[in-house]
């Protein structure tokens, strides 16, 4: 059973009269418990769209619903306290300790002190920071990556069902970014929030999102799961956004299981690959070993079938053809 958590109905935003709309009659339905990435170049309206969900920006016309209720009719402070919000530059309060930063929304909601303390420690654990070590620190004593972990913890503090993230990892170095992306995926597996993430990084969108919404000039150009988007970009613009190495990204999102022949005989001494691994990983193994086939193993390390190099090439070239036809 899926239900729509956030819905945009013909949402239009014009910042100044007579100017081109920043967001142009966008319709969008975001399912509960999924991660949706809004992607596009600067000025495509993705951040404006996000900020209209917590009413930091009010739409010029159209309406946004959360769980079927028009947010225009909700008290704005209450609405914002019920939505987690993570921004690119983190925006931790420098005059408060880490614990008090995380406690902001619970305090606004009037939780008692004991509940807040427990919640803060649980969240620090969740984002991989030792509570005893970090609770009393100041934001200035943390690295950029640690600060953003706290930013995520702060957004999750009151356990909001929806998490809005505005280029959350944009200002981090590639290694820290990859770590945090992995952790967000883990956290999401545990918590099943409805996440809306704004990004201009297609790799990030492919890694994190269940659905990608591509925007250009304030309009939604294409909405699709990552694999579909990689296979069938709707316009040359989407294709260019996906990049030259689209096929590599496609391999990243394709599990070995999909292309392996289960039950097939495997030559002895074949290199092994996990069933759950990505085809991108399999490609690496093929390149490193020069093998023609890999032995596919399940989680217990038992061989369950074979993955042949030709199958991968066929898959890749046929997908490539499909894509260029589209």
């Amino acid at each position: 059973m899926t239900s729509t958590a956030i819905e945009f109905n013909a949402v239009l935003k014009t910042f100044r009269d007579g100017e081109k709309p920043a967001v142009d009659r966008v319709d969008l339905a975001i399912e509960a418990g999924t991660t949706t990435a809004l992607i596009g170049p600067s000025g495509c309206g993705k951040t404006t769209s996000l900020k209209m969900i917590n009413r930091l920006v009010e739409p010029t016309s159209g309406e946004i619903l959360i769980d079927g209720r028009a947010i225009r009719d909700m008290p704005v402070l209450q609405l914002r306290r019920s939505l987690g919000y993570v921004i690119q530059h983190v925006g931790l309060f420098p005059h408060m300790t880490i614990a008090r930063n995380i406690a902001v929304v619970p305090q606004l909601l009037g939780w008692d002190r004991k509940r807040i303390t427990e919640r803060v420690d649980a969240l620090l654990d969740l984002v991989g920071l030792d509570p005893d070590e970090y609770r009393q620190r100041r934001p200035s004593q943390l690295s950029g990556g640690q600060q953003q972990r706290v930013g995520v913890a702060r957004a999750l503090a009151a356990d909001p069902p929806i998490l809005l993230m505005d280029e959350p990892f944009g200002a981090l170095d590639p290694i820290t970014r990859a770590n945090l992306q992995r952790e967000i995926t883990d956290i999401q597996r545990k918590l099943r929030k409805t996440i809306v993430i704004v990004t201009h990084d297609m790799d990030e969108a492919v890694k994190l999102a269940d659905r990608i919404v591509v925007m250009e000039h304030g309009r939604v150009v294409q909405t699709a799961p990552p694999a579909d988007l990689l296979l069938r970009p709707a316009t040359p613009f989407v294709a260019s956004l996906l990049g030259e190495d689209r096929i590599i990204k496609l391999l990243q999102t394709t599990p070995v299981e999909r292309l392996s022949e289960l039950g097939a005989e495997v030559e002895a001494q074949s290199p092994t690959i996990g069933l759950e691994a990505s085809m991108h990983h399999a490609l690496t193994v093929f390149l490193q070993t020069g093998a023609a086939q890999l032995s596919v193993e399940n989680a217990k390390g038992v061989s369950v079938g074979a993955l042949r190099r030709e199958v991968m090439f066929e898959f890749a070239s046929s997908e490539q053809r499909n894509a260029s036809c589209a």
Binding site: V76, L77, R80, I87, H89, F93, P94
Partner: peptide, 13 residues
């Protein structure tokens, strides 16, 4: 820092 202000408003202060 405008980011602090935005975070504060966005959290419902």
């Amino acid at each position: 820092d405008p980011n602090i202000k935005e975070a504060a408003r966005g959290m419902g202060m």
